[in-house]
């Protein structure tokens, strides 16, 4: 396989925790600009895969490349984030004691060292960018609200907004619609499709309606490796996938 045109390239990746193989010889390739949905039952290794890509977990073996040539196993979380991989957690994780605006301000692309932050004055360009993102994530009304006071769905959006503020090349989005109403879910699908126009995106999700709404290639993981890959119709017609989901 050629890595040249890929944004994310995993080959033969394995990792185990205390003898439990969370990821087992996983290979996954994402082209530049592609959006991919990843499904799979609990414990299939979806979150662990994200941990590996973002540098939180080191794989025992296998190759992980970003943008064709960067070996991600050699970098830590902060470096990987600076290279352009943004991650949304399964549980919405925002800075609850800060306002929505400040959350975005801390995420905005820019220098990441202490002294510039200490003497930082907000530039007009930054304010404009924050305004843009607030528009995209539909939280313009709430800009001065503490993040703690947002609803669950709004926190999910704020976190997606923080990813956008980082201006990453690749977004890893873990269960973006967990706990959302149907209307919010639809809205989120629209938001992600918008984002996918100029970013590469990996979405992990359980909600099949949402995955269908996204209308992208689907990868089904099971016990740490790829079970099936293709359109949602193809994957959900796969007998092994059905078996895994319904139990044997």
């Amino acid at each position: 396989m050629s890595k040249s045109n890929t944004i994310l390239y995993l080959d033969g990746v394995s990792v185990s925790f205390d003898g439990f193989r969370a990821i087992n010889n996983l290979s996954l390739v994402l082209d530049k600009g592609e959006m991919r949905a990843i499904i799979g039952p609990n414990g299939a290794g979806k979150t662990t895969m994200m941990d590996i890509v973002t540098g939180k977990t080191r794989p025992d073996e296998g190759e992980v490349f970003f943008d064709g040539q960067v070996d991600l196993t050699r970098h830590d979380e902060a470096e990987i984030a600076m290279m352009g991989i943004g991650r949304k957690f399964q549980k919405p994780t925002v800075f609850e004691s800060h306002s929505v605006e400040d959350n975005l301000m801390l995420a905005l692309k820019g220098p990441r060292s202490i002294f510039p932050a200490l003497f930082h004055r907000r530039a007009a360009a930054e304010t404009r960018r924050i305004d843009d993102i607030l528009g995209i994530i539909r939280l313009g009304e709430k800009r001065n609200e503490l993040a703690a006071n947002l609803s669950h769905g709004q926190k999910q959006w704020l976190e997606i907004g923080m990813l956008l503020a980082q201006d990453p090349k690749l977004l890893l989005v873990d269960e973006p619609v967990a706990g959302m109403t149907d209307a919010e879910t639809e809205e989120t699908a629209r938001l992600l499709k918008d984002i996918a126009r100029d970013h590469s995106v990996v979405v992990v999700e359980h909600d099949m309606h949402f995955v269908r709404e996204l209308g992208v290639k689907v990868t089904c993981l099971h016990e740490g490796s790829v079970l099936s890959e293709g359109t949602l119709d193809f994957v959900s017609a796969d007998e092994r996938v059905v078996e895994v989901y319904l139990g044997r």
């Binding site: 973002t54 939180k56 979380e77 902060a78 984030a81 600076m82 943004g86 991650r87 957690f89 994780t93 925002v94 800075f95 609850e96 004691s97 800060h98 400040d102 301000m105 801390l106 995420a107 990441r112 060292s113 932050a117 923080m162 980082q166």
Partner: peptide, 19 residues
């Protein structure tokens, strides 16, 4: 603000690229 962000959600700050 970053200091308080680290207090409240340290891993979030790391994945935003802060050390």
């Amino acid at each position: 603000k970053l200091l308080m962000a680290v207090r409240d959600a340290e891993s979030r700050t790391r994945f935003l690229g802060w050390r």
